[in-house]
C-alpha cells in the first residue's frame, strides 16, 4: 500500500511540476531612433516590474538609473555619446547586463544638399507637408514600433523555448557518458585482472 502511495506521489509531483519550465533573466537593450529602449523579464514570459537598472559609462561609473514599467519596458535618453552599460540585480544571484554603443542618430535628418532647385527637393520641404500628414506618419511609426517590439518578444520567447529535442539530447549525452564510463571502468578492471 505504502509502495503504491509513494509511487503515486513521485508520479504526481513530476506531472504537476512539469506544467512549466525553469526560467532565466532576459535583458535586452537596443537603440530606437533618438532613445535607447530595453526590456527586462524572465524566459518564462514574466516581466520585471519597477526594477531599477543602473546605467554606467565606459569607465564603469554609474551615471544614471532607469526603472522598468509594468510591462518590464524602459526608455532611456542618454545625455552624451558614450559606451553605455546597463546593469540589473534582481537578487539571489540573478544579475544581467547589456552594453550598447550609443550613437545619436543625427543622420536621420534628411539633407538634400545641391538639390534645392529640383522638384524632389520642393516636394520634401517641411513646409509642403501638411500637419495632418505628419501626425499620420508619426502614428504609423508608433504602430510599427509597437509591432517590432512584440515581434522581438516573440522571437526571444522562441529562442528561450526548451523543446523536447534539447532535453532528449541532454539525456543522450548522459547515456553516452555512462557508456564511456563503463568502457574506462571495464578497461581498468581488465588491467587489474
Amino acid at each position: 500500500m505504502l509502495i503504491r502511495l509513494s509511487q503515486l506521489l513521485v508520479l504526481l509531483l513530476l506531472i504537476v511540476s512539469s506544467a512549466a519550465w525553469a526560467h532565466k533573466v532576459i535583458f535586452d537593450v537596443y537603440q530606437s531612433g533618438s532613445v535607447i529602449e530595453g526590456e527586462l523579464g524572465f524566459s518564462n514570459g514574466d516581466m520585471a516590474v519597477a526594477q531599477r537598472i543602473s546605467v554606467t559609462d565606459g569607465a564603469g561609473v554609474e551615471i544614471d538609473q532607469v526603472y522598468t514599467d509594468e510591462e518590464g519596458f524602459f526608455v532611456y535618453t542618454p545625455a552624451t555619446q558614450d559606451h553605455l552599460n546597463f546593469e540589473v540585480d534582481l537578487g539571489a544571484g540573478h544579475v544581467a547586463e547589456a552594453t550598447i554603443n550609443w550613437v545619436p542618430k543625427s543622420a536621420e535628418v534628411v539633407t538634400l544638399k545641391g538639390a534645392e532647385n529640383t522638384e524632389i527637393a520642393k516636394l520634401y520641404k517641411p513646409s509642403t507637408v501638411a500637419a495632418a500628414e505628419q501626425a499620420s506618419v508619426v502614428s504609423e511609426v508608433q504602430k510599427l514600433s509597437a509591432q517590432v517590439r512584440q515581434m522581438r518578444r516573440e522571437l526571444r520567447a522562441y529562442k528561450e523555448k526548451n523543446d523536447l529535442q534539447s532535453v532528449l539530447g541532454g539525456i543522450g549525452y548522459i547515456l553516452g557518458l555512462v557508456g564511456l564510463g563503463y568502457y574506462l571502468a571495464a578497461r581498468r578492471k581488465l588491467r587489474g585482472d
Partner: peptide, 19 residues
Amino acid sequence: IPVTGMLAATFFVASLIHV
C-alpha cells in the same frame, strides 16, 4: 555507473522543471 547516469539525468531534467 548506471545509477550515477540515471541521477545525472534526473537532476538535468528536474532542474528544468519549475514550481
